[in-house]
Design a binder for these strands. Structure first.
Lengths: 338, 338
DNA sequence: CTGAAAGCGCTTACAG
DNA sequence: CTGAAAGCGCTTACAG
């Protein structure tokens, strides 16, 4: 990076003069227009950019806040992250935390590439979201200069906040069982983290232990259209299906068209529940309105934020894990029985 | 902020020792455990936090990238911002730009509060999104130390990238007219920026000039539920309505329940078009699938990003304005006529 | 086991 | 109109 000094040398003036000119103080300090012109030209030619750290160190004096780096995967889970972020923002405001949130996108499984040493040093704390198994292994195998908290991933080494994956899976199972259902199905995307498998396993386990069939599992792309097509396949291949668990809200929303076209009534023989990971307020007005296991993303975000504050402030803060409970919201797709 | 020096004084050791201890180098440098303990304790008690700017200045040597601050309003427009962000990320990757994107939420109309001098100095460029009128006035009335680009707002003072608001309004008008519609309606939220008014005005203008009625306008909250209720009211009060423009996609999605319950068929007498500002891929599978004026958020983001790069790199870069065209996508709610 | 000193890149009070 | 020098808070090679 070119510095003010190099420009000064090139222009045959002092660093002081260069600094003044670059900060638009030529007028008030009466720098000659010629000098100004020359310096500006050279700065542009050399591609000068201020070193923000030096500027900050000199001007800011102290700092105003803690910088938190949030690593998140920029893929279809974007809607989820949105609620998560709003949860962080809300908590920062609520607790008047001096936090500055910096987003750092990364590719699933490539956390290692994104977690540069210099990047870590430029923040006070790190929140890792959506870590894949490979990412967790990387975290486990290395030491880092700043405190790290995991969102929705289990860990022995790092503090973490998770949702109650077991309940997320068992609740729909219990409900379908109590409604006398026998032939369950699951529509899911490829699992992106272990929690998804836990949810599915607990659903299957609950179904079995309540005397239902082993759930039929259909896997699709994370789009509404794919949810739609997959649901159609499921119903063609397994017409006996009487209850469906959608592992993502978007898949359930996509499927509505199928139910409408096949004239499947709600309430009726078929019931379904979706795990609602999105920010859509649309699930309550669609037809049928979705029964959902509502993921408490804001609560998780809030806990992550507060845990981070404690972690940064408390020397020798111990690894802690917090499980946030989930809510079930019955609506038309699986109405409560009196 | 407490510094390493102050801790050193308090602990009766040198700053060097404190630095070593705080950087977990006690072992390799054989600092006595007593000293370590003492310093750690004092640091914790005094609430020490490293000054990242100083750390960065010393360690990083140079910098690795340009830091861009994105001011955005954390409200219901969150979905829009999501697509916008992905557009930025995609362009950064595509062009291999050395950009670091920092999100700075702010409240509509309170940009002034968020735009602290120290914050601006800590970045290389600023992208202001969702500015309200008051925010634009603030920007116009003041000078800033870093280049500023406006997203989707017109300005004489700052470079900006806007969507073609006139077409966004006129396209639906032209289409309804060509389908022989006579009684248009608009369902909107309160306008949050001048572009929304332009869209509405152009729609009304197009309707009038094509011999249709003046559009009936209904205003609602930015939720699916409110869109649903408002549509019901509209149809009760104005049963003659034969075409509707929804100013937000979420309002149209919310209204689907009404059409279904009133057994209004598509295709049929009634047609509607939505301005699609969201990231939902759901509009193509809902019933009826939505005809939309699709806002080119990714293209806008891409242009903002590239413009920022030029702005930062080119001394004396002039104020430029770029208009991004929109696309119309016909679907079931307003099918194309042969 | 510990410390004095140099220096990262900038800004600014002061001197000329 | 311009420059020499101090200093922001840290890290680290070097000396002891």
């Amino acid at each position: 990076m070119v510095t003010i000094k190099e420009i000064a040398r090139e222009a045959n003036v002092s660093p002081t003069t260069v600094s003044l000119i670059l900060n638009h103080k030529s007028k008030e300090r009466k720098i000659s227009p010629l000098t100004e012109q020359k310096v500006l030209e050279i700065a542009a030619r050399m591609g000068y950019l201020p070193n923000l750290q030096a500027v900050g160190l000199k001007k800011g004096g102290g700092q105003f806040s803690y910088r938190i780096l949030v690593f998140w995967v920029a893929d279809t889970r974007a809607h989820t992250m949105l609620r998560f972020f709003r949860g962080i923002e809300a908590t920062i405001e609520e607790d008047s935390l001096p936090f500055e949130i910096l987003l750092q996108p990364y590719k699933a499984g490539a956390l290692q590439t994104a977690m540069k040493q210099e990047l870590l040093l430029s923040c006070h704390g790190v929140l890792v979201c959506n870590a894949a198994e490979a990412d967790l292994e990387y975290l486990d195998a290395n030491q880092f200069p700043r405190p790290i908290i995991l969102y929705n991933r289990y860990s022995k080494k790092y503090s973490n906040v998770v949702m109650d994956d077991r309940s997320i899976g068992s609740i729909p199972g219990e409900i379908f069982a109590s409604h006398g259902k026998k032939h369950p199905a699951v529509i899911t995307t490829l699992p992106t983290f272990s929690g998804m498998s836990i949810r599915r396993n607990l659903f299957a386990y609950t179904c079995r232990s309540r005397g239902m069939d082993e759930p039929v599992v259909y896997c699709c792309q994370p789009t509404g259209r794919s949810g739609c097509e997959t649901t159609l396949q499921l119903l063609e291949n397994h017409p006996e299906t009487d209850c469906i668990l959608y592992m993502r809200e978007g898949l359930a929303l996509g499927s509505l068209r199928v139910f409408s076209e096949l004239r499947i009534p709600f309430p009726g023989k078929l019931e379904f529940i979706a795990i609602a990971d999105s920010a859509l307020d649309f699930s309550e007005v669609c037809i049928p309105a979705l029964s959902v296991v509502y993921l408490p993303l804001e609560a998780v975000a809030s806990e992550c934020t507060r845990m981070m504050y404690r972690q940064i402030h408390t020397a020798g803060y111990k690894v802690t894990s917090k499980v946030i409970p989930v809510t079930y919201i019955p609506r038309e797709s699986c109405p409560d029985k009196g």
